[in-house]
Design a protein around this nucleic acid. Sequence first.
DNA 1: CTCGTATGTGGAGCCGGTTCCACTTACGAC
DNA 2: GTCGTAAGTGGAACCGGCTCCACATACGAG
Lengths: 188, 188
Amino acid sequence: MTNTGRSLRADAQENQDRILEAAARAFSRPGADTSLKAIAKEAGVGIATLYRRFPAREDLVEATYRSETERLAASAADLLAELAPDAALRAWMDRFVDYMLTKNGMAEALPGILAAREGLRTHSRDLLRAAIERMLTAAAEAGTLRADVPADDVMMAIGGVTLISDHEDQRELATRLLDLVVAGLRPR
Amino acid sequence: MTNTGRSLRADAQENQDRILEAAARAFSRPGADTSLKAIAKEAGVGIATLYRRFPAREDLVEATYRSETERLAASAADLLAELAPDAALRAWMDRFVDYMLTKNGMAEALPGILAAREGLRTHSRDLLRAAIERMLTAAAEAGTLRADVPADDVMMAIGGVTLISDHEDQRELATRLLDLVVAGLRPR
DNA sequence: CTCGTATGTGGAGCCGGTTCCACTTACGAC
DNA sequence: GTCGTAAGTGGAACCGGCTCCACATACGAG
């Protein structure tokens, strides 16, 4: 099934798949015992095995949600087809925040994912950045948003909004802050 | 010395003071063993005593840095005296981020402090909000910044920038994001 | 087939956070 | 001064994250 990582020994690949399945189950459970020990146990492997494959919790979270993140990134294209580019970006920002705040364990992993420089964790980050870039340049060409703000910065801004809105269910705060960010992106 | 909390038993007040002194020492030490156990030990009290006084780590951090936070908030007045209100706010934002990123343990405690609703932890939050409000309304009166964005939102925006800039030493990112926030605060 | 080794594995153990509870003590009432 | 009790205390114990290392095993070379 999952075929992350090259050239794993057959048994190791088996174990990794079971870990990811267990993680997906654990994260989506309401009571959410997402302790790594519990996930390892549920996958029928030792903790060391989990750590070898996913050195940081963020790595496990990233891998678990990878396909959903891909879907989020891909949805930018849909929005661009229906809306003006600036409106598409604004709508996508809402989706981003909803996604991060909804998926169990995602918000805590966000900084590690967005700041990813090394390793495999960059995958999600690159997808998200590319999605933003597409909308941002389209809007810049339309003249509705500034052309001098890098997509990276916009991504980090959205990330910052997500982080500060995470504590307590401050969804309205997030909305207002996203509006503020977009206002800052308007050409003068 | 410190006289937080009303009507503590004499010995309890003693202990609380010693905890705060130990915490201040621990946080300012380079190698920084800021484990609560270590701080309690250094203060010569049991962990339970520390927890009774400061139920969350954030409470301890807030109390330890209280006077410095007061100074930060007060510095807004100085800036207002020297600069145009919008420039003062922008300069103060830099101070805020530098402060939060510099003080050991502060960044992690930030969400808890800014989101503080109950308890005594609100003290720092209120001071910071008031400082922002002063600069923001002055700028609004001068017509250089919007009047329809609440000081709370600006505070949260600065907080978000701080959080996302915390991982890795991304001081330049913070600068760019703060510029973006201020751009969003400009009247159209 | 067999065998050496790179690859992979489990769990014990350490660390920091946090809770709980049996014990101690300050201090106001008398 | 003495005493009852509310307030305060210490540390054992539990939990989750994370590391380390002695042991197991897939699998390609021969």
